[in-house]
Structures are given as structure tokens and as C-alpha cells.
Design a protein around this nucleic acid. Structure first.
Lengths: 120, 120
DNA sequence: CCGTATCCTGCTCGATACTG
DNA sequence: CAGTATCGAGCAGGATACGG
């Protein structure tokens, strides 16, 4: 019954406080170094950046290229495989935008995207 | 920059341990009573079922119809609005299926969908 | 039958310090 | 520069009991 329902599989890959933004950065800017990502995402800690990158790498969403040199240099980029999920991401993004609009119509301009009802 | 990225908005609605399954049930079976959902999802507690339903209701994904009678009767169903996200859900599901296949090719038949790398 | 109210646990994420 | 290691807070989610 729930065999058809692999929505959760897709969710697992995308969920993580920073994964969507990281992917967004890499999709937009192409290749980026660790420190560039840190600068682009000022509030993320090294620990989180590392762990989120590793998970994305495991799922073949991003590629990690290490330059054996001093000082170290590591570049991250979207994989060919992950390029294929661009339409999906776009669709999710579009739906997100539309949904925020829908919520405004329902509850008014105030209650933003983190309004009551969602966990709070 | 991250303004374009409302993927997270979409994620917020779908995330929650039981939301995808609940939506799946309601999409499949149409209208269902509280107790029917409980029976369909044997491992969920009343508390979780209630809270997840409320969040989905807030986002206008499901409709809650209360019959004022003794004993109480409440029916849940997918809203018209949420019907429109069926293609998105389908796309996510399809990608999920394909991704599990992809992981198998990468790491072999063993490592299932909860393999290393994902948080663990 | 359809829920709340409480209490508790485990995991995610953050802060901070250290290393090749 | 690009990471680990460690510790701890906070929150999602579970067990259980009670209420309209």
C-alpha cells in the first residue's frame, strides 16, 4: 500500500536545515570552494556545512574534488545525475511560491510562512 | 538571493513523520474517519495523528468535517486546493523510486534507503 | 469516538575548541 | 584552508492517562 509512496525517499534527501540552500548555491554558482560556501551562508557552522555536504555527496547530488596541496583546497559542484532533478526542484519551488500566496489569501498578509499551525 | 528558493516552503508542508502517509491514504481512499486513519496507520498515536492532521488542515491540504452527534464523527478529505499538488507529489514519488534505483547501482543491492551517510 | 494533557526520550543542530 | 571532536540545548515525536 505505502509501497507506491516513495515521496518520503525524496524528502529524506532534501531535508536538513541547510541542504536546499547549499544546493541552490551550487546550482547557481557552479563550482564553489568550502570557504566560499561558508561566506555565502554566514550562519552555518563548519560542522553543519561538512555534514550536509557529506550527505549530499553520499546521495550523488554533489561532487567533492580535493586538490592535494598546501593549503588544502576542496571544490564542490552539482553532479550530472543531480542536474536531472532541476525540474523537480523548480516545480517544488513554484509550488512553494504559489502556496505562500494561497496562505495569504486564506489568513491575510500578516501570518508569514512560519505562522501558527505549523508545529508552533 | 535565496528569495527565489521557496523549496523549503514546500518542504515544510510535507515534512513530518506521518504527513506523507496520511496524504497518501486520503488521496487513495477519499474521505476517511479518524478511526479509519488510525486503523490504516497502526503505529501512529492519537496525539501524532491529531497534530499532523491539524497542520495539514491549517495549510488547506485536508478538510475536516465534524458531525455534531453522539458518538462524535469526524471525516477528513483532501481539499480541492490540494488536488492541484497531485502532479508534484507524483513527480516526487517518481524521483524517489528512480533515486533508490540509482543508489543501488552506486552502492549495491544491500544498502537500502536508510543507509549510511544520511544522518547516521 | 475523538480527541487533550503530561511526561519523557532521542536526535538534530549549535557553540566552541582543536588538527593536518 | 578545510575540516574533526566534544558537549549541550531544544524540539519533534512517543507512551500513557484522562476528558467531552
Amino acid at each position: 500500500m505505502a509501497d507506491n509512496c516513495k515521496v518520503e525517499t525524496a524528502l529524506e534527501i532534501l531535508v536538513g536545515k541547510w541542504k536546499p540552500v547549499i544546493m541552490y548555491q551550487l546550482f547557481s554558482n557552479g563550482t564553489m570552494r568550502f570557504s566560499e560556501l561558508q561566506r555565502a551562508l554566514p550562519d552555518i557552522t563548519k560542522k553543519m556545512l561538512t555534514s550536509q555536504l557529506r550527505e549530499l555527496e553520499y546521495h550523488d547530488i554533489i561532487h567533492r574534488k580535493i586538490y592535494m596541496q598546501i593549503p588544502p583546497k576542496v571544490e564542490y559542484s552539482i553532479t550530472e545525475y543531480a542536474m536531472k532533478m532541476a525540474p523537480l526542484l523548480q516545480a517544488m519551488n513554484d509550488w512553494g511560491v504559489a502556496h505562500l500566496q494561497h496562505l495569504n489569501e486564506l489568513y491575510g498578509e500578516d501570518s508569514g510562512e512560519e505562522a501558527a499551525g505549523t508545529t508552533k
